[in-house]
Write a protein that binds this DNA or RNA. Structure first.
Lengths: 205, 205
DNA sequence: ACGCATTTTGACCAATCGGTCAAAGAGGAG
DNA sequence: CTCCTCTTTGACCGATTGGTCAAAATGCGT
């Protein structure tokens, strides 16, 4: 009955996935404190005690989601290649981050909720995982700029601006659509064109 | 005992201000659903029934804050002068928005929480107040670009990018400080220099 | 079909939620 | 001081919160 994948049964794997998906819906829409276990259970079509059979507590579900997310979230940044073409590496990073906003808006909002509310669960991970990675990639970018392959600009704030601009289209989706009006079905093509223009003009020698 | 200012007593004015300030602390840190009336009352040094003597409900406090905020929030955009120097008008808007992130981070987070969670209270105001103003100013900017006084770029997304980049330093303050490290006491001077460079390179002919 | 581990459930718990109410307290105009 | 309005409070309400528990139901290998 046990399974090779981390000592989990087939049912456990599917139910945990179902619960995670439902919890992502609820947490990303209401934040941790604004979400209830009943609501997650309802979204997962499970009774509350049944849900708490798979996760020991509401906080455990939340932590599970955040730790799983952190890796996915940093992946595009890790892929920046010091040996690649500087401008193209940055623009590819922008494209990847914007694609994540388009394809994983719930994850983006879960992350945003956590940070806005002071990162009570993730602040340790920010120092331990995020800071070193950003420092490393910022050094790569700074090196490119010193070699005259990119126009100079503060590398850390460059990375901040990429995060900010791309995640905006997921986190503030309601506002973007309200301003653009209903005739704009999909803001992302326009957004990508604008952002690529922006970073080309900022960085291109 | 009554006062000329909208039929409010002196005590009412000061207590309502105290409650609003406390509620801004709580709502901006936890979102509407994640906040409790008890917590706001505690932050305002009032008993819960006393607080509910000045506001009929938790929702009324929240609505009060949001409606008051909407005006303040749109003010810098309103100040863009069609007769002014195009680049300087945009850069001044950036400076004003960044100053608001520095001086009113709680208001920024209150707004961000509301939008991220689908704008359940503000979506009407977004269509009624925000969209027309943005369309008007976007037309001004488009006109500048057509006259060759700014480099061409999508005006709506230009405005989005200003919102996104400036509010990031309030809403994601924890992340910014975690990445920059404790030796950077105040990220805002660096941020302003970076953002002004960014928009100059994007728009300057 | 058996037997055992896994899964699901309804009933239940103390604590907290938003909000009410009657009564007590405070403060100023006459 | 007196009276009346405004302010404050403790006690309380039903509903909901996160979480528990024993018992029932359901797999699943043999």
């Amino acid at each position: 009955m046990k399974d090779s994948t981390g000592g989990q049964t087939r049912i456990q794997r599917t139910k945990i996935a179902t619960i995670s998906d439902a919890a992502l819906d609820v947490f990303s829409a209401n934040g941790f404190r604004g979400s209830t276990v009943d609501e997650i259970a309802r979204a997962a079509n499970l009774s509350k005690p049944n849900l708490l059979y798979y996760f020991p507590s509401k906080e455990a579900i939340h932590t599970h989601l955040l730790t799983a997310l952190m890796d996915t979230w940093l992946d595009p940044l890790r892929q920046i290649d010091p040996e690649g073409d500087p401008l193209e590496e940055v623009l590819t990073y922008v494209r990847r981050k914007l694609a994540m906003s388009r394809d994983m808006p719930r994850e983006s909002r879960l992350f945003a909720n956590e940070i806005i509310q002071g990162a009570p669960w993730m602040s340790a991970s920010l120092e331990r995982d995020l800071k070193p990675l950003v420092d490393e990639k910022a050094a790569v970018i700074a090196h490119w700029m010193q070699n005259g392959r990119l126009k100079p600009a503060d590398p850390h704030h460059l990375i901040f601006s990429i995060w900010s601009l791309t995640q905006h289209y997921a986190d503030f989706d309601v506002q973007v659509r309200a301003v653009l009006g209903p005739e704009v079905r999909d803001p992302f093509p326009e957004a990508e064109a604008y952002l690529l223009t922006l970073f080309r003009r900022l960085l291109r020698i």
